[in-house]
Write a protein that binds this DNA or RNA. Structure first.
Lengths: 126, 126
DNA sequence: AAATCTAATGCAGTTTAGTTGCAATAACAA
DNA sequence: TTGTTATTGCAACTAAACTGCATTAGATTT
């Protein structure tokens, strides 16, 4: 497990995620940071932060990669098994603070759980 | 709504899905049919079959598009809201014959539900 | 604080899934 | 058999994500 240096770029991305509690796509982050760092750097930092358990990632509706801050996760233990909700109006993606009810899996063992919902968020629904 | 002609290619793809009950990715189908039809044709037929309610599609772990046969769906009514399970050993994707328990959505309205699990399937687990 | 080590970065090029425009072809109806 | 038009193949395109490599900049040691 390589050391992760807290570079300027890493700090920027961490600061970004610590303010807002929504998920962001790699594409959005690349656009947001385009004057501060290279696209490749964004991808690589996101990878590292996921490996460290600081962010979790999942695939959105169009197959894009999304990232959000983990709550109480580490590289060893991942407790972030919750649904993600994308609004079809404003495109925001929220982490829903609920546990996922697993279906009956018979003789299957489980590795990862992705629960992705789309619809209208509370704001766009009012 | 355009007429969908039962061409040779359409029949091939329908026959393929009627034999096996597992899901297949667009990439797998393109590879499988590479001597019989063009990649573009595969994509377009899949699109049409989804529109007609004959297949349903969802996004797999790596953001790839997957397709499986619907059970009792039409272009008007879609009843195929079930989890999908991909084996990390044999890569097969199964449709789990269970309903998905929805979380509490507060003031959100819902459009689509994607529940994707990975792990070891019953066969690879024994 | 200078020298050193190596993780992290930028850049350009590459890969791959999926899409589009258009001319040619093949279902299907008359 | 002819005519209509949905469908196909092809080539070019788009966009997300990845890779190799030379350079830069954190961290560590002296």
């Amino acid at each position: 497990m390589g050391i992760v240096r807290k570079t300027k770029s890493v700090k920027e991305i961490l600061a970004f995620f610590s303010t807002k509690n929504e998920a962001k796509s790699a594409v959005q982050l690349i656009e947001f940071f385009k004057d501060k760092m290279n696209r490749t750097t964004v991808y690589r930092i996101l990878d590292r932060l996921v490996e460290e358990g600081i962010l979790h990632s999942f695939n959105g509706k169009e197959g894009l990669k999304w990232y959000a801050k983990c709550q109480g996760c580490s590289s060893e233990h991942h407790s972030d098994v919750h649904p993600h909700f994308q609004c079809t109006d404003c495109d925001k993606v929220e982490c829903l603070p609920t546990n996922i009810a697993l279906p009956n899996l018979n003789n299957r063992s489980i590795d990862s759980v992705d629960f992705f919902l789309t619809g209208k968020c509370a704001t766009c629904n009012s």
